[in-house]
Every structure is written in structure tokens, then in C-alpha cells.
Amino acid sequence: MTTSPEHADVPAQLRLIVAQWAVDLALARYPIRAARLRELEAMAARSEDLVEARRTVAEIGRILDEAFTEAGIERSPA
């Protein structure tokens, strides 16, 4: 039995979808944290100050690290 190329990565794609869903659920469990993440994302998008942007992105990273840990998902390096 052969697998066509378009179907070869289906299991990997499903794992990725489930992992993202688990992280989204971890974020949604804490509405204040989710709101802070949205606020930080908006701040990063409009920031013109490099120092402020780096500080904002670092906090986004910490929030995402927490969510990945809670979801039991290993976060791959950027």
C-alpha cells in the first residue's frame, strides 16, 4: 500500500492541530492572562521603540511558555 504525498503528513498535521488546540485551551482557562496576551500583541504591533518592543515580546514569550507547559507541549525553539 502506498501513500500519496498529499496524505503523507496527515498524522503530523493532526498532531500540530491538537497541540495548538491544547495551547489555546490553556490560554483560555485564564481570561485575564488571555486578555493580557491580546493587549501585548497589539502593543507589539504598534510599537516603534525597539526596547519597548523587545520587552513586550519577552512578556508574550513568558505567557506562551506557561501555556505550552500547562498543555504538556514542548515548545520548539524559534
Rank of each mutant, 00 (worst) to 15 (best):
F68E: 05
I17E: 12
P31Y: 04
E74P: 01
A22I: 00
V18T: 11
A28L: 10
E70P: 01
L50M: 14
A35L: 13
Q20E: 12
S47C: 09
D49W: 01
R38L: 14
E70T: 11
V23R: 01
A67M: 02
S47Y: 00
R36E: 14
L25D: 12
L37Q: 03
S47H: 00
P77T: 11
W21A: 14
L14F: 11
T3G: 05
R29G: 07
T3V: 15
E59V: 01
R62E: 06
D49P: 01
A12I: 08
Q20V: 10
V23I: 13
E39C: 03
A26K: 03
E6M: 08
A8H: 11
P31D: 08
A34D: 08
A44L: 06
E52M: 07
R36Q: 10
A53Q: 07
T69Y: 10
S4I: 13
D24C: 06
E48H: 03
A45F: 07
R55N: 07
E70Y: 00
R38W: 08
E70G: 03
A28I: 04
M43E: 13
F68L: 06
P77S: 12
L16T: 09
V51I: 14
E48I: 03
T3S: 10
D65P: 01
A35I: 04
R38V: 04
P5I: 04
Q13L: 15
S47W: 01
V23G: 01
A8K: 09
R62Y: 02
T3F: 04
E39N: 07
I63F: 04
T69N: 12
T2C: 08
V57C: 06
V57N: 02
A45H: 09
S76G: 11
A44I: 02
A53S: 12
D49F: 03
R15Q: 13
E6C: 06
A44C: 05
V10T: 14
R33D: 09
E48Q: 13
L25I: 08
V23Q: 04
A71T: 01
I17Y: 13
S4G: 08
L50D: 15
L16R: 15
L64R: 01
L27S: 02
I73R: 00
T56W: 03
A45N: 09
Q13R: 15
S4L: 15
E70D: 15
L40H: 02
A71N: 00
I32F: 11
A35Q: 14
T56C: 15
I60Q: 04
R33M: 15
A78V: 06
D65L: 08
T2P: 09
R55I: 04
A67P: 00
E59L: 11
D9R: 08
A12R: 09
R46K: 13
E41Y: 05
